[in-house]
Structure formats: structure tokens, C-alpha cells
């Protein structure tokens, strides 16, 4: 096996592994569009990284985290509905990134690679970032798992029970920012949230506990990465989109799983309540 395929596979699997549990929480907390907004801002991070001559990975992490913090502050003011706010920020940030990149005269940037990913060009350094960032994000998520889950199920109840709801919520956003930054290379800023959302949604019907869903989402994500890369290799299709197509295919397959299986121990008379 060629080294670049091995690097692509390792990078993709690492991203899928951390995207499973993180994506499950994004789905539970209805933050899919939030993730999209952060991802759109990543391009601005790329431009700033080149402008300031620092590591692009680092600058993307910083820009994503800054945007997440700005969102928290703006949402708290409640001047605008959340989806309006996200819509404004997502597209402003993306456009700002594109404009900033146009100003870079000395560097030529392969825009398509950043927008849709270039997993086959993942270097050993990139792989190091993915593995390191992924491991940090996964460990941190395990660390805040219980309070984050309690806050996700019911915020007020968790708060009364002494859970630091605001703190774990912000920590979770920072983790999303981190994972978006390191995973950008694999599927690109426009597709990155799909790798978090689709496997998690696909895992739902086979799961009875939050942990099962998170683990299964990781597994299905790895499956999608492998299948997507295989398809890309065989048919010479773009790798990032191929992975997302594979994930969508898995999601459709899961829709065929009968609902009864999910509630096999449920009382059929009340299952619709």
C-alpha cells in the first residue's frame, strides 16, 4: 500500500473516531448549524495563518475558538434568533476568508483543497496534528461527558443539581472548534460537519444509550471513511465528497432498520406516546 493512502486512511479514521461522540452531542444539542458556522470560519483562519506566517492549523483553531466565543456572547444578548445569527456569521466568515485569501499575493492556495478536503495530500505533519488534536478532544470529551450529558438532557434540572452548565457548554464548543481545525484537511470546511452529523444520526436507531450511539457513530464514521477512500481509489472520484456520500449511504441503510428493533423491550401500546 502506498504511504499516502496509508496516511489518508489513518487521518480519516482518526477524524471519524472523534467525530462520532462529538457529532452525537452536536445532534443532541441541535448544534449542526453551529458546527457549520465554525467550519465556514476556518477559511478565514487559513488566510490569517498565511498572512501572519504561523501554522495554519494553529490559526484555524484560534479563529474557530474566537468565533465560538463571539457566538456565545451574541446568543446571550438575544437580539437575534439563533439561526439568523448563525446564518450571518457563517457566510460572512466564509466570504471574509475568500476575500482575505485573494489579498495574499505571494502564496498560491489550492482553494478546492480547503473547501472540500484533500485527504490524499495529508502529510506526516498533518497526520500528527490530526492524531494529537483528536486525542486531546476525545480525552476532554470523556472528561466532561457526565455533566455535558446532564446539561444536554435538561439544562435547568442540571443547573439545580449543581452542574456547571455554562462552563461545560463552552468547553464543548471549544472541542468542536479544535476538531474542525484538525479535520479540515480530510473533508474540507464545507463538508466537515457532515462527518460529525451523518454517522451520529445513522447510529441513533441501533442505540439504546447515549454511549452506544456515540461508539456506533465512530464505527459508522470509520466505515464511511474506508468505503469513501476505496471508492475514490477505484473510480478516481474526489476523496472528501466520496466519504460523505458513503456516510449518507450508510445513513439511508440504517433507515431500513425497523423501529420495533430499537424499542424491542418497549411496551408497544405506549411506544407512540
Amino acid at each position: 500500500m502506498d504511504a499516502f493512502i496509508l496516511r489518508a486512511l489513518l487521518g480519516g479514521l482518526a477524524v471519524a473516531l472523534v467525530a462520532g461522540p462529538l457529532g452525537s452531542f452536536m445532534v443532541w444539542r441541535r448544534m449542526a448549524y453551529f458546527g457549520d458556522t465554525l467550519a465556514h470560519s476556518a477559511l478565514l483562519g487559513v488566510a490569517l495563518g498565511f498572512l501572519m506566517g504561523i501554522s495554519v492549523n494553529l490559526s484555524v483553531i484560534l479563529v474557530c475558538m474566537a468565533l465560538a466565543a463571539a457566538l456565545v456572547v451574541l446568543q446571550r444578548q438575544r437580539r437575534l434568533a439563533s439561526d439568523t445569527l448563525l446564518g450571518i456569521l457563517a457566510h460572512s466568515a466564509l466570504s471574509l476568508g475568500l476575500v482575505a485569501i485573494a489579498f495574499l499575493e505571494t502564496v498560491r492556495i489550492d482553494l478546492m483543497a480547503y473547501l472540500f478536503g484533500d485527504i490524499l495530500a495529508v502529510s506526516w505533519v498533518d497526520l500528527g496534528w490530526i492524531l494529537g488534536g483528536g486525542a486531546v478532544a476525545l480525552l476532554a470529551l470523556v472528561g466532561i461527558w457526565r455533566p455535558l450529558l446532564a446539561a444536554t438532557v435538561h439544562e435547568d434540572l442540571a443547573r439545580v443539581e449543581g452542574v456547571p452548565v455554562t462552563a461545560v457548554g463552552i468547553a464543548f464548543m471549544m472541542l468542536i472548534a479544535l476538531v474542525i481545525a484538525v479535520a479540515m484537511k480530510v473533508v474540507g470546511v464545507l463538508l466537515i460537519t457532515s462527518l460529525m452529523i451523518i454517522p451520529a444520526a445513522a447510529a441513533r436507531r441501533l442505540s439504546r444509550t447515549p454511549e452506544q450511539m456515540a461508539a456506533l457513530a465512530s464505527l459508522l464514521g470509520c466505515l464511511a471513511v474506508t468505503a469513501g477512500l476505496w471508492g475514490s481509489w477505484n473510480w478516481d472520484t474526489p476523496a472528501g465528497p466520496s466519504i460523505v456520500v458513503a456516510a449518507a449511504g450508510i445513513f439511508l441503510l440504517m433507515l431500513a432498520v425497523p423501529v420495533d428493533w430499537m424499542r424491542r423491550r418497549g411496551d408497544p401500546e405506549r411506544s407512540e406516546a
Partner: peptide, 22 residues
């Protein structure tokens, strides 16, 4: 605290047992 009317979204798989030990 017992809040008024809780709806846990269908997308979050959770049993009563797990809910109680949150």
C-alpha cells in the same frame, strides 16, 4: 427540582434508568 413537563428529544437514546442517574 421537578420541572414542568420535560420532553427529551427522540434523537437522544436514553433509558429511564440512565435518566435517573444523570
Amino acid at each position: 427540582y421537578m420541572p414542568q413537563r420535560i420532553v427529551v428529544d427522540e434523537i437522544l437514546p436514553i433509558t429511564v434508568r440512565r435518566f435517573l442517574s444523570l
